[in-house]
Structures are given as C-alpha cells and as structure tokens.
Design a protein around this nucleic acid. Structure first.
Lengths: 241, 241
DNA sequence: GCCGATTTGTCCGTATGTATC
DNA sequence: CGATACATACGGACAAATCGG
C-alpha cells in the first residue's frame, strides 16, 4: 500500500538513474509533472522534496529542478540510509559471514548507561559479532539490545541476521537511527578478533536505533578495518540559522 | 523573512532543548499545536517533518509525536549539516588558525576529473590549507574550486575564511553538499604538514558543495588527525524499497 | 529598466484514510 | 465501537525568483 508521493518519487528516481534526466539537466516543470502523474501540486512537491533530501536533485527557485545525481564509481561498503550488514554486502556482491563471539545478559550500570544512552537498570543483551567480508574478518560489532523489546536472542539468530528476525518474526520496524563516526586506536578485543595485519586504527561507527514507537532498542559499536570502510551522505544547509 | 514552518520548527526545537518537552515525552497533538501557532495542518506538519529529519522527534501514528533528543555529552568536532571549519571551531570554543600551504590555478585533466567530479577542461583553483586546533596541526584541506564561480582567491582570503568571502562578498550560497568518509594511510604531504606523532592513518572527509543553482563549485578532501575527528548524523529508514 | 509569462516556494482549508486506545 | 491523533491527498491562492521581450 504505497503512498502516491512515494511511487512518484520512485518513478522519477528510476528515470534519473537510467539517464532519462541526466546530470545537470532540468526535470519537467511541476505543472507538467502534475499532469503526467495526475496528482496535486502538494503531492508532487513531496516527491521532489524526497529527491532533494536524498541528494538527487536541486530545485532552483523560478527556474527549474536540476538533476545533480552522478552514478557512483567504485563499490562502497556503507552508504547513507540505514542498512543492515547483510543488505549492504548483498548490494555490493560481497561474500559475507557472521560469527558470534559473545552473547550474554547484562543490566545497564552507570558506565553502560553513559556509553549507550540507555537508563541504568535496563535489562540488555550484549552481543559481539565478527563480520567476514570475502574471507577477512573486517568488522567487529558490539551491540546492546533492549531485552523488553527484542526478547531473547540466540546465537543462531545472531549468526543469520538479527534485523531479519526483528522485522519478520517480531514485526519490529527499525524506523530511524543516529550515527557517530570516529577513528580510534585498536583495542585488545579488536586485535584478537579481526584480521588487522599490523593496522593499529579502526573506524568506529556508533548507531542508536529506534523502533516505530521512538524507543531506542539497539546500541551498536561497529568497529571497521579502516581500508574496508566507506560512508556516504548528503546534507542540506540549514536555513536562516 | 522567515518561513512560517521554520519559525515553528525553531520554537519547538528551543522548547525541546530547554526541557519543556523532555526525552521520551510526547509533544502536544497536531490539533493543539495548530491552535497555539495559529497555522494550518500542512504548515505544522512541515515543522514536525524538519524535527523528525534532524533526529529530534519521532511521530507515532495514532499516538503522538515522541521526543527522542538527548543532549550531547562531550564536545565533538564535526556534526551533521554543512558547517565551515570556522563555525565548527567557534561552536566548540576551540582556538583555531589556518595556514595556506599551496595555491595555484589548474585545469582539470582526466585524473582530477575522475577524482573530483568536475568536467575535463574546467578551470580550477587548487588550495592546500592546514588547520590548527588549539595549536596542533590537525587537519589538511585540499580543495578544488571552480574558477568561473568563485573568481580569484587570494592567500589572504583563504587564510581567513573562504566561505565568509563566498557568502558575504560574492553572495554565493552553499546550498547542499555530498560527503564521503573513509580512513586512509597517511601520505607524504600529510606527514609533512600535520602533527601526527607517529599516527599512520587519517580520517578523510570528502565534500562536494553545490551552490543555489545546483552547480558544484567546491571539491575538498579534508584529512583529519584521527583522534580529533568526530562525525554525527541522523538517518530515517527509506520506506518500502 | 520594466512587464508579463513561467516556475518554484509557502500557506490555507478541507476531506479521507488508518493506527491507537 | 467511538474518540483521538497522525498520514495522505486535493485544490486554490499568493509570494518570489527567473528570463525574455
């Protein structure tokens, strides 16, 4: 049951990607587009706003909507938007595997609470996973899940895909996330579990995931071998400030 | 000349930050808010969409709009949104200085074109700048500006703030940007110009900036000493896909 | 420089759908 | 089931930027 503005967004995006509307060209005017899609001004503008927010077009007042999408050159590991490890690997045609290195129940103490943003006393599940990409242990994920939402997680589930389990079995939708990226020296655990070959820094992507209710249920520190890490996004300048 | 939805956004944001609407609480209903702000449903929803996109709230269908903002703990260097080096430093109360290490005119050859996304033959200005934070040379910026838009750039301008010059003197608005973050081994130039103290990796943030017309006029590789680098953002899951 | 046509930007009022409680 | 609240969509109006005559 798709929204109208979303199907229009998808359609325009497909045409941008297939070259119908190439880089630096202008889309047909809003009037023209409302006719072809037989929708209202407002609805069309929602579709255009999506394209703009994703970095595909740039509207110019009084002139038109310019396409600024350029196809990516090389394969990247991580891109903008929230994607699971499995989704990302499949999109890039990487072989991948996950090993569970630790799994235990913990209660958030002061240290964990400050680290993760959970409240002290929250019952959590701690999981360490090692991700292999094309054979090399490239990523160490250290996650804290909120037990009251995700229930019990077994090693089997963690080895396949926790997100598949949450979405398909439990119906939990990962609605949004906050991310932080830093670069940190390797810790003992990184050296034990990852193939680092003398590398002494890791790229750390920290994610807090919220469900459809706005409750945070996952905190994950994803520690990447630096040469296999790439992150992309698009930013629109804040107005006025 | 602010937009209505933007002033509402600013006001709600201020109330979230000052604790009037604390973490995990619900905002007043849309009906209530349209009354207090005396605006239409549509306009209010645009303000809420902004809050959602910036990661401050999470609307729950049929229930309410939940606040998910938590104040940041430690100072960070770079945050989401497009900010200049100067803005970021001032916000964090860092002392900062910029030295110009190179400045020359170049024409984009095939190599530069592929690196930056400019077209071959474009006339560019190449600038290397070293950024000092609290005295240590922490960031090396290597930029290519499109000459037809930015005109001539002098070392004096580059030492103060190129963005101030572009915005205030030339009236160029930096409307949006695309970013990529990777971690790369230090190159010869990094070692020459930065205080690395044995560190052998740098965090590289690549930015393509577009003006209000949707024309790319800046490509910058910002090479950071890893322990002084932090990046934040918020992502909303794509619908349907 | 001005005017008018075109195009994007903002806002309103209303109607209907759908999820929550 | 009904009340409440968010989600989508329509149509109309006016403002503001661009461009050509």
């Amino acid at each position: 049951m798709k929204a109208r503005y979303d199907t229009i967004y998808q359609d325009l995006l497909a045409r941008i990607k297939d070259g119908t509307y190439p880089y630096q060209s202008f889309l047909p005017s809003e009037n023209a587009l409302t006719s072809t899609y037989d929708c209202s001004h407002n609805t069309l503008r929602r579709a255009l706003a999506l394209l703009r927010d994703q970095g595909y077009v740039h509207p110019v007042h009084g002139k038109g909507v310019r396409v600024i999408y350029q196809p990516v050159q090389r394969a990247s590991f991580t891109v903008g938007g929230i994607e699971s490890f499995k989704e990302t690997s499949e999109r890039n045609n990487f072989s991948y595997a996950t090993e569970v290195a630790a799994l235990s129940n913990v209660v958030a103490d002061e240290h964990i609470a400050r680290l993760t943003g959970y409240a002290q006393g929250d019952e959590l599940i701690y999981i360490e996973r090692v991700r292999r990409l094309n054979g090399t242990a490239a990523i160490l994920d250290r996650s804290y899940f909120l037990k009251s939402i995700v229930g019990d997680l077994t090693a089997e589930i963690a080895e396949r895909s926790i997100y598949d389990h949450l979405e398909q079995d439990l119906g939990i939708i990962v609605a949004m996330g906050k991310r932080t990226i830093t670069v940190e020296p390797v810790e003992k655990r990184d050296a034990e579990l990852l193939d680092l070959e003398g590398i002494d820094y890791v790229a750390v992507m920290t994610t807090q995931a919220f469900n459809a209710q706005g409750i945070m249920f996952e905190y994950t520190q994803s520690r990447h071998r630096p040469d296999m890490f790439c992150f992309r996004d698009t930013a629109v300048r804040e107005r006025y400030r």
